[in-house]
Nucleic acid binder design. Structure first.
Lengths: 134, 134
DNA sequence: GCATATTTTAGAGTTAGTCTAAATATCAAT
DNA sequence: ATTGATATTTAGACTAACTCTAAAATATGC
């Protein structure tokens, strides 16, 4: 009944997808799919688990959100879609975005050593966040 | 009956753990736990799946092997335990080790920007491996 | 308004790994 | 060598985080 809003590239932004995007955009942190599922249910009580996953995939492909995967545990989602790096607290798990300006150079250096044709570089710092440093 | 060989730090290197370590040391690539399970069964037919996982954890904690996790799919294991970086082929999944000499500097720069107390940096280049570049 | 295409849903299925409790093996001291 | 304490292995049940499927609901184009 309600006409679906569209993204600027013409893709369909249904109520469900909009709710999921809204959750990610409103949060400062980097929620997991499950966090998003719970928050999305507040906005759209009937939304199902599978739809949250479908929406996340859709939004990711549309470039509206960014997925962060560390080997451990669940993926986290990030409203920041530009290239950036991550710092992960080894004590409390806090995840912080930052940007290393030398990333482009770095990618070249890495490409030279590995003999790969570079597409992207991902850098993660592990350490203690300011709160966990005492 | 057979006395267990010990690592130089005195930890027990049982037949099972030795088999798992042997598999990893003999391979040039970066096998998954399942690859290791299959190869270990050739050496020690009765070895169980759980034992391979237990052994991998043990060997990792003893610093004898290195675990590599990317968000996608299963962990890979690496006989190279010194700090190093990885290049991952976006087409065929090939994983190659290399070392970036500027890693120490990089860690400092990342620590400065994120305000974290640094422990380690992990860099991954995604791109096309030499074979997949045509 | 009807046919076609897209999206959502519930729930089953999958993957990779962890946990548990019983069985077995090793060690250290008689 | 036997005994008891400790460590390790095993099979299989269990878990977390997704992914898939097929049917139902919804939207779009004519």
């Amino acid at each position: 009944m309600a006409k679906p809003i569209r993204t600027d590239t013409g893709a369909r932004l249904t109520r469900q997808r909009e709710a999921v995007l809204g959750v990610i955009r409103e949060r400062e942190d980097h929620p997991t799919a499950n966090d998003i599922f719970e928050a999305a249910r507040q906005r759209l009580p009937g939304i199902s688990y599978a739809t949250v996953y479908n929406s996340l995939r859709f939004l990711k492909e549309a470039g509206l959100v960014h997925e962060i995967k560390f080997g451990d545990s669940a993926s986290r989602y990030d409203r920041e879609t530009d290239r950036h790096d991550h710092a992960l607290c080894s004590q409390c798990g806090k995840l912080v975005d930052f940007d290393l300006p030398q990333a482009a150079e770095l990618m070249k250096a890495a490409a030279r050593r590995s003999k790969f044709k570079p597409e992207s570089v991902h850098l993660t710092l592990k350490g203690l966040c300011p709160d966990c440093c005492e």
